[in-house]
Protein backbone atom coordinates (compact mmCIF):
# COMPACT_ATOMS: atom_id res chain seq x y z
CA UNK A 1 0.00 0.00 0.00
CA UNK A 2 1.29 3.46 -0.91
CA UNK A 3 1.96 5.87 1.94
CA UNK A 4 -0.35 8.85 2.33
CA UNK A 5 1.30 12.25 1.77
CA UNK A 6 -1.85 14.38 2.20
CA UNK A 7 -0.26 16.74 4.75
CA UNK A 8 2.96 17.22 2.80
CA UNK A 9 1.13 17.75 -0.51
CA UNK A 10 -1.17 20.36 1.05
CA UNK A 11 1.93 22.28 2.23
CA UNK A 12 3.54 21.86 -1.17
CA UNK A 13 0.43 23.31 -2.86
CA UNK A 14 0.97 26.54 -0.98
CA UNK A 15 4.74 26.47 -1.55
CA UNK A 16 4.15 26.12 -5.29
CA UNK A 17 2.69 29.62 -5.28
CA UNK A 18 6.09 30.92 -4.16
CA UNK A 19 8.04 29.31 -7.01
CA UNK A 20 9.48 31.67 -9.58
CA UNK A 21 7.24 32.03 -12.61
CA UNK A 22 8.34 32.84 -16.17
CA UNK A 23 7.60 36.52 -15.55
CA UNK A 24 9.78 36.47 -12.40
CA UNK A 25 12.61 34.98 -14.46
CA UNK A 26 12.10 37.71 -17.09
CA UNK A 27 12.32 40.33 -14.35
CA UNK A 28 15.57 38.78 -13.08
CA UNK A 29 16.93 38.67 -16.61
CA UNK A 30 16.20 42.30 -17.26
CA UNK A 31 17.84 43.37 -13.99
CA UNK A 32 20.80 45.69 -14.43
CA UNK A 33 23.38 43.76 -12.39
CA UNK A 34 23.82 41.01 -9.77
CA UNK A 35 22.91 43.41 -6.97
CA UNK A 36 19.53 44.11 -8.62
CA UNK A 37 18.98 40.35 -9.08
CA UNK A 38 19.79 39.73 -5.41
CA UNK A 39 17.40 42.51 -4.36
CA UNK A 40 14.55 40.99 -6.39
CA UNK A 41 15.26 37.55 -4.94
CA UNK A 42 15.25 38.91 -1.38
CA UNK A 43 11.87 40.53 -2.12
CA UNK A 44 10.61 37.09 -3.18
CA UNK A 45 11.65 35.71 0.21
CA UNK A 46 15.01 34.20 -0.76
CA UNK A 47 17.78 34.09 1.86
CA UNK A 48 17.32 34.80 5.55
CA UNK A 49 17.14 38.61 5.64
CA UNK A 50 20.88 38.84 6.31
CA UNK A 51 23.41 40.19 3.85
CA UNK A 52 24.38 36.95 2.10
CA UNK A 53 26.65 36.65 -0.91
CA UNK A 54 25.22 35.14 -4.12
CA UNK A 55 26.71 31.70 -3.42
CA UNK A 56 25.58 31.79 0.22
CA UNK A 57 22.07 32.76 -0.89
CA UNK A 58 21.86 29.78 -3.25
CA UNK A 59 23.22 27.39 -0.58
CA UNK A 60 20.75 28.81 1.95
CA UNK A 61 17.89 28.15 -0.47
CA UNK A 62 19.04 24.56 -1.07
CA UNK A 63 19.25 24.04 2.70
CA UNK A 64 15.82 25.61 3.18
CA UNK A 65 14.38 23.24 0.57
CA UNK A 66 15.71 20.09 2.27
CA UNK A 67 14.80 21.33 5.76
CA UNK A 68 11.24 21.83 4.50
CA UNK A 69 11.18 18.39 2.85
CA UNK A 70 12.50 16.72 6.02
CA UNK A 71 9.76 18.47 7.99
CA UNK A 72 7.03 17.22 5.64
CA UNK A 73 8.28 13.72 4.84
CA UNK A 74 9.06 11.80 8.00
CA UNK A 75 10.50 8.76 6.21
CA UNK A 76 13.88 9.87 4.80
CA UNK A 77 14.26 6.67 2.78
CA UNK A 78 11.27 7.71 0.61
CA UNK A 79 13.46 10.30 -1.09
CA UNK A 80 16.71 8.31 -1.06
CA UNK A 81 16.77 8.29 -4.87
CA UNK A 82 17.22 12.09 -4.85
CA UNK A 83 19.91 12.09 -2.17
CA UNK A 84 21.93 9.07 -3.19
CA UNK A 85 23.79 10.76 -6.10
CA UNK A 86 25.27 13.11 -3.48
CA UNK A 87 26.71 10.11 -1.61
CA UNK A 88 28.50 9.01 -4.76
CA UNK A 89 29.76 12.56 -5.30
CA UNK A 90 31.08 12.56 -1.72
CA UNK A 91 32.73 9.18 -2.29
CA UNK A 92 34.43 10.55 -5.41
CA UNK A 93 35.69 13.54 -3.40
CA UNK A 94 36.90 11.30 -0.57
CA UNK A 95 38.74 8.86 -2.84
CA UNK A 96 40.46 11.61 -4.82
CA UNK A 97 41.37 13.74 -1.80
CA UNK A 98 42.80 10.75 0.10
CA UNK A 99 44.93 9.54 -2.84
CA UNK A 100 46.23 13.08 -3.46
CA UNK A 101 46.60 13.79 0.25
CA UNK A 102 44.54 16.97 0.23
CA UNK A 103 41.77 18.18 2.54
CA UNK A 104 38.21 17.94 1.13
CA UNK A 105 37.22 21.35 2.55
CA UNK A 106 34.07 22.73 0.92
CA UNK A 107 33.84 19.87 -1.59
CA UNK A 108 31.31 17.65 0.16
CA UNK A 109 27.56 17.86 -0.35
CA UNK A 110 25.91 17.45 3.03
CA UNK A 111 22.43 16.59 1.84
CA UNK A 112 23.17 12.90 1.40
CA UNK A 113 22.04 9.55 2.79
CA UNK A 114 25.34 8.98 4.61
CA UNK A 115 27.36 11.61 6.49
CA UNK A 116 30.25 12.74 4.18
CA UNK A 117 32.76 12.81 7.05
CA UNK A 118 31.93 9.17 7.83
CA UNK A 119 32.46 8.25 4.17
CA UNK A 120 35.81 10.09 4.23
CA UNK A 121 36.98 8.40 7.45
CA UNK A 122 35.91 4.93 6.28
CA UNK A 123 37.69 5.30 2.94
CA UNK A 124 40.77 6.78 4.63
CA UNK A 125 40.98 3.90 7.15
CA UNK A 126 40.03 1.34 4.46
CA UNK A 127 37.18 0.23 6.77
CA UNK A 128 34.78 -0.23 3.87
CA UNK A 129 32.54 -2.52 5.93
CA UNK A 130 31.43 0.48 8.00
CA UNK A 131 30.00 2.14 4.90
CA UNK A 132 26.37 1.63 3.84
CA UNK A 133 25.96 -1.49 1.70
CA UNK A 134 25.50 0.45 -1.54
CA UNK A 135 28.90 2.20 -1.10
CA UNK A 136 30.89 -0.71 0.31
CA UNK A 137 32.07 -2.47 -2.87
CA UNK A 138 32.27 0.58 -5.10
CA UNK A 139 34.43 2.45 -2.56
CA UNK A 140 36.92 -0.38 -2.44
CA UNK A 141 36.90 -0.87 -6.22
CA UNK A 142 37.33 2.86 -6.97
CA UNK A 143 40.10 3.26 -4.40
CA UNK A 144 41.98 0.20 -5.69
CA UNK A 145 41.57 1.35 -9.31
CA UNK A 146 42.87 4.84 -8.55
CA UNK A 147 45.82 3.60 -6.50
CA UNK A 148 46.83 0.97 -9.07
CA UNK A 149 46.29 2.95 -12.29
CA UNK A 150 46.22 6.65 -11.19
CA UNK A 151 43.44 6.91 -13.80
CA UNK A 152 40.95 9.46 -12.46
CA UNK A 153 38.56 8.84 -15.34
CA UNK A 154 38.39 5.11 -14.56
CA UNK A 155 37.68 5.94 -10.93
CA UNK A 156 34.91 8.32 -12.06
CA UNK A 157 33.18 5.80 -14.28
CA UNK A 158 33.29 3.10 -11.58
CA UNK A 159 31.57 5.47 -9.13
CA UNK A 160 29.18 6.97 -11.69
CA UNK A 161 28.11 3.53 -12.92
CA UNK A 162 27.49 2.40 -9.31
CA UNK A 163 25.45 5.56 -8.78
CA UNK A 164 23.30 4.84 -11.86
CA UNK A 165 22.81 1.22 -10.78
CA UNK A 166 21.73 2.34 -7.30
CA UNK A 167 19.25 4.92 -8.64
CA UNK A 168 17.90 2.34 -11.12
CA UNK A 169 17.46 -0.21 -8.28
CA UNK A 170 15.69 2.36 -6.09
CA UNK A 171 13.36 3.14 -8.99
CA UNK A 172 12.61 -0.54 -9.49
CA UNK A 173 11.92 -0.99 -5.77
CA UNK A 174 9.49 1.92 -5.64
CA UNK A 175 5.76 1.39 -6.03
CA UNK A 176 5.30 5.01 -7.09
CA UNK A 177 5.12 5.62 -10.81
CA UNK A 178 6.72 9.06 -10.71
CA UNK A 179 9.75 7.77 -8.75
CA UNK A 180 10.19 4.92 -11.23
CA UNK A 181 9.98 7.42 -14.09
CA UNK A 182 12.43 9.85 -12.49
CA UNK A 183 14.98 7.09 -11.82
CA UNK A 184 14.65 5.77 -15.36
CA UNK A 185 15.13 9.24 -16.88
CA UNK A 186 18.07 9.91 -14.56
CA UNK A 187 19.86 6.82 -15.90
CA UNK A 188 18.79 7.44 -19.51
CA UNK A 189 20.16 11.01 -19.54
CA UNK A 190 23.45 9.86 -17.98
CA UNK A 191 23.74 6.96 -20.45
CA UNK A 192 23.17 9.20 -23.46
CA UNK A 193 25.74 11.71 -22.18
CA UNK A 194 28.25 8.91 -21.59
CA UNK A 195 27.62 7.37 -25.01
CA UNK A 196 28.07 10.71 -26.79
CA UNK A 197 31.29 11.48 -24.89
CA UNK A 198 32.66 7.98 -25.49
CA UNK A 199 31.84 8.25 -29.20
CA UNK A 200 33.53 11.65 -29.46
CA UNK A 201 36.68 10.51 -27.64
CA UNK A 202 36.87 7.07 -29.33
CA UNK A 203 36.76 4.92 -26.22
CA UNK A 204 37.31 1.15 -26.30
CA UNK A 205 34.30 -1.21 -26.17
CA UNK A 206 35.25 -2.53 -22.70
CA UNK A 207 35.37 1.02 -21.32
CA UNK A 208 32.02 1.91 -22.91
CA UNK A 209 30.31 -1.22 -21.61
CA UNK A 210 31.68 -0.50 -18.15
CA UNK A 211 30.44 3.10 -18.22
CA UNK A 212 26.91 2.63 -19.56
CA UNK A 213 24.31 1.55 -17.02
CA UNK A 214 21.32 -0.73 -17.43
CA UNK A 215 17.90 0.88 -17.95
CA UNK A 216 14.51 -0.13 -19.35
CA UNK A 217 13.95 2.27 -22.24
CA UNK A 218 17.39 2.08 -23.85
CA UNK A 219 19.14 -1.08 -25.00
CA UNK A 220 22.54 -1.09 -23.26
CA UNK A 221 24.13 -3.36 -25.90
CA UNK A 222 22.87 -1.31 -28.85
CA UNK A 223 23.86 2.00 -27.23
CA UNK A 224 27.33 0.66 -26.35
CA UNK A 225 27.82 -0.65 -29.89
CA UNK A 226 26.67 2.70 -31.33
CA UNK A 227 29.03 4.61 -29.00
CA UNK A 228 31.92 2.46 -30.27
CA UNK A 229 30.88 2.94 -33.88
CA UNK A 230 30.79 6.72 -33.59
CA UNK A 231 28.82 9.89 -32.90
CA UNK A 232 26.41 9.50 -35.85
CA UNK A 233 25.60 5.93 -34.84
CA UNK A 234 24.68 7.13 -31.35
CA UNK A 235 22.38 9.78 -32.81
CA UNK A 236 20.75 7.35 -35.21
CA UNK A 237 20.17 4.86 -32.36
CA UNK A 238 18.61 7.58 -30.16
CA UNK A 239 16.39 8.67 -33.05
CA UNK A 240 14.87 5.16 -33.00
CA UNK A 241 13.95 5.42 -29.31
CA UNK A 242 11.32 7.45 -27.46
CA UNK A 243 14.00 10.09 -26.82
CA UNK A 244 14.28 11.08 -30.49
CA UNK A 245 13.45 14.70 -29.57
CA UNK A 246 16.86 14.86 -27.84
CA UNK A 247 18.79 14.45 -31.11
CA UNK A 248 18.62 18.15 -32.05
CA UNK A 249 19.76 19.17 -28.58
CA UNK A 250 22.70 16.73 -28.66
CA UNK A 251 23.68 18.09 -32.06
CA UNK A 252 23.68 21.63 -30.66
CA UNK A 253 25.82 21.05 -27.55
CA UNK A 254 26.08 19.05 -24.32
CA UNK A 255 24.63 21.95 -22.34
CA UNK A 256 21.67 22.05 -24.76
CA UNK A 257 21.18 18.33 -24.09
CA UNK A 258 21.35 18.92 -20.33
CA UNK A 259 18.66 21.58 -20.75
CA UNK A 260 16.61 19.09 -22.80
CA UNK A 261 16.91 16.53 -19.95
CA UNK A 262 15.72 19.03 -17.33
CA UNK A 263 12.88 20.28 -19.54
CA UNK A 264 11.79 16.73 -20.35
CA UNK A 265 11.71 15.91 -16.63
CA UNK A 266 9.76 19.10 -15.86
CA UNK A 267 7.21 18.23 -18.58
CA UNK A 268 6.85 14.71 -17.18
CA UNK A 269 6.39 16.10 -13.65
CA UNK A 270 3.77 18.73 -14.54
CA UNK A 271 0.71 16.43 -14.13
CA UNK A 272 1.76 16.04 -10.46
CA UNK A 273 0.26 19.50 -9.91
CA UNK A 274 -3.14 17.78 -9.73
CA UNK A 275 -2.21 14.75 -7.64
CA UNK A 276 -3.33 15.20 -3.99
CA UNK A 277 -2.19 12.09 -2.10
CA UNK A 278 1.06 10.56 -3.37
CA UNK A 279 4.74 11.49 -3.13
CA UNK A 280 4.65 12.73 -6.76
CA UNK A 281 4.01 16.43 -6.02
CA UNK A 282 6.82 16.42 -3.44
CA UNK A 283 9.28 14.98 -5.95
CA UNK A 284 8.04 17.44 -8.59
CA UNK A 285 8.43 20.36 -6.17
CA UNK A 286 11.98 19.38 -5.21
CA UNK A 287 12.98 19.12 -8.87
CA UNK A 288 11.23 22.41 -9.67
CA UNK A 289 12.98 24.15 -6.78
CA UNK A 290 16.37 22.75 -7.80
CA UNK A 291 15.78 23.89 -11.37
CA UNK A 292 14.88 27.31 -10.06
CA UNK A 293 18.10 27.52 -8.03
CA UNK A 294 20.00 26.35 -11.13
CA UNK A 295 18.33 29.10 -13.21
CA UNK A 296 19.15 31.79 -10.66
CA UNK A 297 22.77 30.57 -10.47
CA UNK A 298 22.95 30.87 -14.27
CA UNK A 299 21.48 34.38 -14.26
CA UNK A 300 23.79 35.54 -11.47
CA UNK A 301 26.93 34.19 -13.12
CA UNK A 302 25.83 35.57 -16.50
CA UNK A 303 25.28 39.02 -14.99
CA UNK A 304 28.66 38.78 -13.31
CA UNK A 305 30.32 37.95 -16.64
CA UNK A 306 28.31 40.48 -18.64
CA UNK A 307 26.55 37.93 -20.90
CA UNK A 308 23.57 39.08 -22.95
CA UNK A 309 19.96 38.36 -21.97
CA UNK A 310 19.49 36.21 -25.09
CA UNK A 311 22.49 34.01 -24.28
CA UNK A 312 21.11 33.30 -20.79
CA UNK A 313 17.58 32.66 -22.12
CA UNK A 314 18.87 29.90 -24.40
CA UNK A 315 20.21 28.02 -21.39
CA UNK A 316 17.35 28.57 -18.97
CA UNK A 317 15.13 25.60 -18.14
CA UNK A 318 11.33 25.59 -18.41
CA UNK A 319 9.70 26.56 -15.14
CA UNK A 320 7.32 24.19 -13.29
CA UNK A 321 4.71 26.88 -12.56
Amino acid sequence: MQQDYTYAVARIRFKETQLLSDSDIDALLSSKDTEAVMRLLRDKGWGDNSDLSAEQLLSAEEEKLWAFVDECVSERSDLEFLRVPNDFHNLKVAVKCITRDIKPDGLFIYNAVCDPETVYECVKNRSYKDLPEFLMDVAQEAMTALLQTSDGQLCDIIIDKACMDRVYTLGKQSDNEIIRLYCELFVVCADIKTAVRCAKTGKKPEFIRRAIAECDTLDKDKLSAAAYEGYDAVLSYISLTEYRSAVDAINTSMSAFEKWCDDYLTAVMKPQKWEPFTIGPIVAYIIARQNEIKAVRMILSAKLNGLSEETIKERLRDMYV
Binding site: D4, T6, Y7, A8, V9, A10, R11, R13, F14, K15, C72, P276
Partner: peptide, 14 residues
Protein backbone atom coordinates in the same frame (compact mmCIF):
# COMPACT_ATOMS: atom_id res chain seq x y z
CA UNK B 1 -9.74 13.28 9.60
CA UNK B 2 -8.32 13.08 6.09
CA UNK B 3 -9.49 16.56 5.13
CA UNK B 4 -8.22 17.83 8.49
CA UNK B 5 -4.72 16.57 7.72
CA UNK B 6 -4.69 18.51 4.44
CA UNK B 7 -6.20 21.58 6.13
CA UNK B 8 -3.46 21.51 8.78
CA UNK B 9 -0.84 21.32 6.04
CA UNK B 10 -2.19 24.47 4.40
CA UNK B 11 -2.57 26.27 7.74
CA UNK B 12 1.08 25.53 8.54
CA UNK B 13 1.93 27.74 5.56
CA UNK B 14 -0.91 30.27 5.55
Amino acid sequence: GKAGVAASGVLAED
